[in-house]
Design a protein around this nucleic acid. Sequence first.
DNA 1: CCCGTGACTTCCG
DNA 2: ACGGAAGCCACGG
Length: 110
Amino acid sequence: MKEEKQDFFKRVYQVAKQIPEGRVTSYGAIAQYLGVKSSARVVGWAMNASHGDMSVPAHRVVNRVGLLSGKHHFEGTNLMQQLLESEGVIVKDNKVQNLEQIYWNPCEEL
DNA sequence: CCCGTGACTTCCG
DNA sequence: ACGGAAGCCACGG
């Protein structure tokens, strides 16, 4: 596929890279910021493609309830959780705690 | 061009 | 309140 076609992916990467450390956001939030609020899954899929781009902090992107849905896509176990905890994010049982406090809304922050 | 897939989200029972 | 089902959009084959 052509790079121009990946504009959507690039958008997702750009937003993800702008997520401050110790903060997390949801796929739907990114999708909404990009203008397609009904494409949260596509955002997740874009993250899947982000595997080739380590600079994309995919571990900071969780689902709406703060659940590390993408953890299964990482190295497998608790790498994602460790990365988040290492940034100051409290994670328990694959779930982000005090989500409302660390939630980063691109629509408002950007 | 049609179909399948996916790290989500929301509604209905 | 909880669980299952449908909807959604983009990409690859």
